[in-house]
């Protein structure tokens, strides 16, 4: 598996950075060819299904099962169908719902999580590892174990149909995610600056606010994106704890109905899927380095 020539192996491993030391290669070796083949296989594996979704989204509904690998019979009708409410779908409203739920969850999780992450990364206090263990344990917690009691509770207090019934359960996974990702980012900060600020007369609170927070901003932003994505992608809890008015996009797309019963409106679903996915993909591509750093530093959620 790991057969490498001197060229292929050494340079690639030598540097963990994104720009491995390039050296002029004269020979096009067998191993280099194999490496390129591997790259092509991975890229095709990852992108082909996504590509197929986008192609289908733009394809005329009469040609749903056309297998031409490039876009044919291009139309925007599917997007119109996706947003149309005449068939009982409320995709537009669901998009807004997901946005509201995601933003609220993210704000709450980051607001609480950044203090905890600061304490874990920076301070020495009793029970620190217990807290870290609790947070990690919470992140692996099966959502289904929350579902029954919350469903009963929210039904009793008539919260089903309110956004709080969806935001509160989302905290259960967004907050642990926020804490450990931020802890990883905070651990990398140049803490000497904080010491220096205190020596110069700042209180620890001021040092945190005025010196470290600006430095931590990119990490906070990345963490916020990760928390938002986790909430945007949630399905299990939302499918039971929402109603027609509050359902997020994942639930709306999963329950998409077509004009005829038992006939799946594939192209419209693919159009809806494209709308849900493409903003995420663009965001992820723009921030890929930071997101990979955040994921691998505390990578839990798939």
């Amino acid at each position: 598996m790991a057969s490498t020539t001197a060229v292929g192996g050494r340079g690639g491993l030598a540097s963990a950075a994104d720009r491995p030391a390039m050296r002029p290669r004269r020979r096009f070796t067998f191993a280099a060819a194999r490496s390129y083949l591997g790259i092509v296989i991975i890229v095709v594996f990852c992108l082909a299904p996504f590509y197929w979704m986008v192609v289908t989204a733009f394809r005329n509904v009469g040609y749903t099962f056309d297998t031409t690998p490039w876009p044919t019979h291009i139309t925007l009708d599917n997007f119109r169908t996706a947003f149309s409410t005449s068939l009982g779908n409320h995709f537009g409203r669901a998009l807004i719902n997901s946005l509201i739920i995601g933003v609220c969850t993210t704000i709450l999780a980051v607001a609480a999580g950044c203090f905890a992450a600061y304490a874990i990364a920076r301070l020495d206090f009793r029970g620190k590892y217990l807290v870290l263990g609790l947070v990690l344990g919470a992140s692996m917690f099966p959502g289904v174990a929350l579902l029954t009691p919350l469903f009963q509770l929210f039904t009793n207090v008539h919260w089903i149909g309110g956004y709080q019934a969806l935001i509160i359960p989302d905290i259960s996974f967004a907050l642990p995610l926020t804490v450990y990702t931020l802890t990883a980012f905070f651990a990398e900060l140049p803490w000497e600056l904080e010491e220096a600020a205190v020596v110069d007369g700042c209180t620890p609170g001021q040092a945190f606010r005025k010196v470290l927070l600006p430095l931590a901003a990119p990490g906070l932003f990345t963490t916020a994106i990760l928390a938002f994505i986790s909430s945007w992608n949630e399905f299990l809890l939302a499918s039971e704890l929402s109603n027609d008015k509050t359902q997020p996009v994942t639930v709306a797309v999963a329950q998409f109905t077509g004009s005829q019963p038992h006939q799946e409106p594939y192209t419209a679903v693919m159009a809806a899927g494209t709308i849900v996915t493409v903003p995420l993909v663009i965001m992820v591509l723009l921030l890929q380095r930071r997101i990979v750093a955040g994921l691998t530093a505390g990578g839990v959620k798939g």
Binding site: I42, L47, V253, M270, G273, V276, V281, L285, R289
Partner: peptide, 20 residues
């Protein structure tokens, strides 16, 4: 390119993945 493509399946919501 590799890192970008690898992140695409991860970013797609599982519910959408299932529909796809």
């Amino acid at each position: 390119l590799l890192r970008a493509s690898v992140l695409v399946p991860w970013a797609i919501p599982t519910a959408i993945t299932a529909k796809l």
